[in-house]
């Protein structure tokens, strides 16, 4: 423990605040490792979720109700049941026993965010005036060309803010992994609490790290939005 921390600790003790910095210092490497896993799991979740979500969103927009039905119920299920329940089902029942908790967490976050992304995607496309597609069709473009050159470029701009929100929600939800002992950030907070029977030090640190992550993400998203606005 370096001198600086000792000085702060002295000050805390003098004013009578019961806060043990040495717990944080001791667990810092684990918190950092947990943070990396939180970031990795979230990135994987949003990436796979986006790919799946595009597919499911398109399925939901199918004209035939029989094609639409499974996609509609996919979204209903994953939006209508608690994420924790989904995590339990996937970790303890769906995934082969002995598979890693991180894998279970990634699968659950991906499947869950796919449902939300599907809705964002669908809403984005629906928000583009019908006249745009009609004009493109009247020029002889086929369905794929209309989507690729006219509808999607406009819809994707509108999809960025809600997608950003979804990413932030997903990052925070990844903390549920602690309950199945996936070694992400909150898991290490719980470990520290378990070892020292202290609550404030580990959980406050964990909360601050989450806050730093979500705030930087917000900053990046705002930047992207501004860039797209001025284009």
């Amino acid at each position: 423990m370096n001198d600086f921390i000792l000085v702060i600790q002295d000050m805390l003790d003098t004013v009578g605040i019961d806060f043990k910095l040495n717990i944080i210092v001791e667990y810092l490497p684990f918190f950092l490792r947990g943070t990396l896993i939180t970031i990795g799991v979230s990135l994987a979740g949003i990436f796979i979720g986006m790919v799946l979500g595009l597919f499911i969103g398109m399925g939901k927009m199918a004209k035939s109700w029989i094609i639409k039905l499974p996609f509609v119920w996919y979204v209903n299920f994953f939006r209508g049941t608690p994420l924790l329940v989904q995590l339990f089902i996937i970790h303890f029942a769906v995934m082969p026993s002995g598979s890693s908790t991180i894998a279970s967490l990634i699968v659950t976050l991906s499947l869950n965010s796919a449902a939300y992304v599907a809705e964002i995607f669908r809403a984005g496309i629906k928000s583009i005036d019908r006249g745009q597609a009609e004009a493109a069709h009247s020029l002889g473009m086929n369905k794929v060309q209309v989507m690729r050159y006219v509808v999607l470029p406009q819809a994707s701009k509108r999809m960025i803010p809600p997608l950003g929100n979804e990413f932030i929600v997903l990052l925070k939800d990844s903390s549920l992994g602690a309950i199945i002992a996936a070694p992400e950030l909150l898991y290490w907070g719980r470990a520290a609490t378990g070892q020292y029977y202290r609550v404030w030090e580990p959980y406050l640190t964990v909360a601050l790290i989450y806050l730093m992550l979500t705030l930087s993400l917000t900053y990046v998203l705002n930047y992207v939005e501004r860039r797209l606005d001025t284009e």
């Binding site: 005036d129 006249g131 745009q132 009609e134 004009a135 493109a136 069709h137 009247s138 020029l139 002889g140 006219v150 406009q154």
Partner: peptide, 15 residues
Amino acid sequence: RTEVGMVFQQFNLFP
């Protein structure tokens, strides 16, 4: 449709 051009009331230019 390439042989039949159409002009709309709301223009429908690609913004």
